[in-house]
Design a protein around this nucleic acid. Structure first.
Length: 677
DNA sequence: GGACAATTAAACATCG
DNA sequence: TCGATGTTTAATTGTC
């Protein structure tokens, strides 16, 4: 996921870089506003300082204000350039594409209109930027007020002619300096966030989280120091930020706490690495090789410039960089504070990642369950094969069987593997389109139950069903009351049931025809209305045995995964009493471990063992299609003809009224020989 | 590596 | 003649 996200981020880099330009443009507006605020502050205070005369404290204030103003300006520039960091970090060539917008934004920010920014920036980016700017403005307001307050105090003290103890003044100055430093850190933090926004696979909306929270978390002057000092406190800011962000800690408590756990997060030499492998300031450097460092280079040095947050000083070579690093980024308050900021950035990102991962899983789980009455499934199956689970599992009509047996929905695995799309086995999912793996997949899922559960999914999602053409054709035929379909009706069933088969019609229709002709289990019957196709269950079952018997490993795996020993006795008894003896095979008794296994045992294990009850011979002389078709020549009796071949269920002419919904009958019918593959 | 199954593509025949 | 239907062959691929 990370890789994909990273790649996606990279793919989206252009937009992000556009966003850079726009962001810088936005930064103009907002940053401009911030800058204006800072500038205003600076001027304001400077004026006050001037009016105060040449008192050293005032000069100090003035200097600090200038510094703040400079920082603010720097931030704006960094914001612009930093947003293009993806290109800068990875390759200059990619940056070239956005060089113009960035430069334009940097050089003439005021030229960008809000409309232009909106065009360049996505709404989430705009929102994030606005929030950022607001936070920055608030901070600057905060410091401005503090400056004013301090200045006021100085004035009052001077006017009073009272000699202020130098210690107190010095302390205040130090405090103010510290605040300035924090402000600087915040700005760098913003910059980092923006960089991450472009580098990390955080979607704009996601990125808005850290962007939103970091300033808040950092606004508190005590946070960063605490983050750096103790192990007990570092996690706090993250948690606070989480709360501020509105994270649902109840839902993501595990991940959130795991990430926010102080001891793990706080260590100065953080083990954290950004999702995309981007090195953090203090992280071990092995993750930094992903995109910028060449062997032997320094993680903080890339593309000829210092990668220290907010630095970007150009260094010709590594030696120069080392020198620069030791001089400019030595172990001092500023550097350590920046490290803290970086740590927090990493924390936030990890928390955000955890949150988003959680969300993704929830989404997948939800989608997985959705097709058929979500909740009831997973639980009962996890509980085991107990009868109690039946009632729950059989919530869906399609999943309730006359015999009381449960066809474990393949989707029951959802809770276990939430990332798996509904009804899709991992194999099919991994394989994506190729249907050749269907053979193994089909073993893992009874088509009827799976279709019943994931009907909507397959119907709407352009996902190839993990079933063979033969199994699908059979399913289509069996779903009909009289169990016979014309070719066109089979086509229609395919297109109706699967979005996947709404395209490439020539291909799959040809495959359907091919399968109908190829497999002896499909019998063509002349009907009054033309030729119809029926299913010879016996033949269909015969297809499986070789494979099942021939693949002991598969059976072994199945059974081993079934935890057969833990089978519920009552369930076995129920199975024994069921009208489908073959279901008594161990495989059927899947407690619900891997639902996917049950189907397999259900049809694949069962099929070979118990061919067909109706016909004593396990391998009756196979009726050649012509022969058989001859027997069932008349459509009026197709069911009867099939009945001979049909295992147990649905003997006699199909009576929809008695049998109920076709699906039920189908499911019922499937049980015996059901190897829905 | 071979056997087997599934898929895909294609050619061809038949029929309405 | 055309399209739908049905049969057959061959190539490819994945699994066992």
């Amino acid at each position: 996921m990370m890789v994909e996200s990273a790649s996606e981020t990279i793919r989206s880099a252009p937009s992000g870089q556009n966003g850079v330009g726009s962001l810088s443009g936005q930064a103009d507006g907002g940053g401009g506003a911030a800058g204006t605020a800072a500038g205003g502050t600076g001027r304001e205070v400077a004026t006050g300082a001037d009016s105060n005369g040449e008192m050293s404290p005032a000069e100090l204030l003035h200097f600090q204000q200038q510094q703040a103003l400079q920082v603010a300006r720097q931030f704006l520039l960094q914001q612009a350039s930093g947003l293009s960091s993806p290109g800068n970090n990875d390759s200059k060539q990619s940056a070239s594409a956005v060089q113009v917008p960035v430069s334009v934004a940097m050089m003439s920010p005021q030229m960008l209109t809000p409309q232009q920014m909106q065009q360049i920036l996505s709404p989430p980016q705009l929102q994030a930027l606005l929030q950022q700017q607001q936070a920055l403005m608030l901070q600057q307001e905060y410091y401005k007020k503090q400056q004013e307050q301090l200045h006021l105090q100085l004035l009052t003290q001077q006017q009073a002619g009272k000699q202020q103890p130098k210690e107190a003044l010095g302390n205040k100055q130090l405090a103010f300096q510290q605040q300035l430093l924090q402000m600087q850190q915040l700005q760098q933090q913003h910059l980092l966030n923006l960089q991450r926004q472009g580098l990390v696979s955080l979607q704009p909306s996601q990125a808005s989280g850290p962007l939103q929270t970091l300033p808040q978390a950092a606004v508190c002057p005590t946070d960063l120091p605490q983050l750096w000092k103790g192990e007990g406190t570092p996690g706090q800011p993250a948690e606070d930020s989480i709360k501020q962000e509105g994270l649902d800690l109840t839902g993501t408590a595990a991940t959130a706490t795991s990430f926010a756990t102080p001891p793990k997060v706080s260590p100065p030499l953080s083990h954290h690495t950004l999702p995309n492998g981007q090195p953090t300031v203090l992280t071990s450097r092995r993750d930094s090789t992903s995109h910028e460092e060449t062997p032997g280079s320094h993680p903080l040095y890339g593309h000829g410039e210092c990668k220290w947050p907010g630095c970007e000083t150009l260094c010709e070579d590594l030696g120069q960089f080392i020198k620069h690093l030791n001089t400019e980024h030595a172990l001092d308050d500023r550097s350590t504070a920046q490290c803290r900021v970086q740590m927090q950035v990493v924390q936030q990102l990890e928390i955000q990642l955890a949150k988003e991962s959680e969300r993704l899983q929830a989404m997948m789980a939800h989608l997985h369950m959705r097709p058929s009455e979500p909740k009831p499934f997973s639980q009962p199956l996890n509980l085991g094969p107990g009868s109690s689970s039946f009632s729950k599992v059989t919530v869906s009509a399609a999943d309730s069987f006359p015999d009381g047996l449960v066809h474990p929905p393949t989707s029951a695995a959802a809770p276990v593997t939430p990332l798996r799309p509904p009804g899709l086995s991992s194999a099919s999912l991994h394989s994506g389109g190729p249907a050749r793996r269907r053979s193994s997949d089909k073993f893992c899922s009874p088509i009827s139950s799976e279709l019943a559960q994931n009907h909507e999914f397959y119907k709407n999602a352009d996902v190839r069903p993990p079933f063979t053409y033969a199994s699908l054709i059979r399913q289509a035929i069996l779903e009909t009351p009289d169990r016979q379909l014309t070719l066109n009706e089979i086509y229609n069933w395919f297109t109706r049931m699967f979005a996947y088969f709404r395209r490439n019609t020539a291909t799959w229709k040809n495959a359907v025809r091919h399968n109908l002709s190829l497999h002896k289990c499909f019998v063509r019957v002349e009907n009054v209305k033309g030729a119809v196709w029926t299913v010879d269950e016996r033949e269909y079952q015969k297809r499986r045995p070789p494979k099942m018997t021939g693949s002991p490993t598969l059976v072994k795996n199945m059974i081993s995964g079934l935890s057969y020993g833990a089978l519920n006795a009552s369930y076995q008894a129920a199975l024994a009493e069921s009208s489908f003896p073959l279901l008594n095979s161990p495989g059927v008794l899947n407690p619900g471990s891997a639902s996917s296994l049950l189907p397999l045992s259900h049809e694949d294990v069962g099929a070979p063992v118990e061919p067909l009850p109706s016909n004593g011979s396990s391998s009756p002389p196979r009726l050649s299609p012509p022969q058989y078709s001859h027997q069932v020549q008349v459509k009026e009796e197709p069911a009867e003809a099939e009945e001979d071949r049909q295992p147990a269920p649905s003997l006699g002419p199909p009576n929809p009224s008695t049998l109920g919904p076709p699906e039920d009958r189908d499911l019922e019918e499937e049980l015996p020989g059901e190897e829905l593959s």
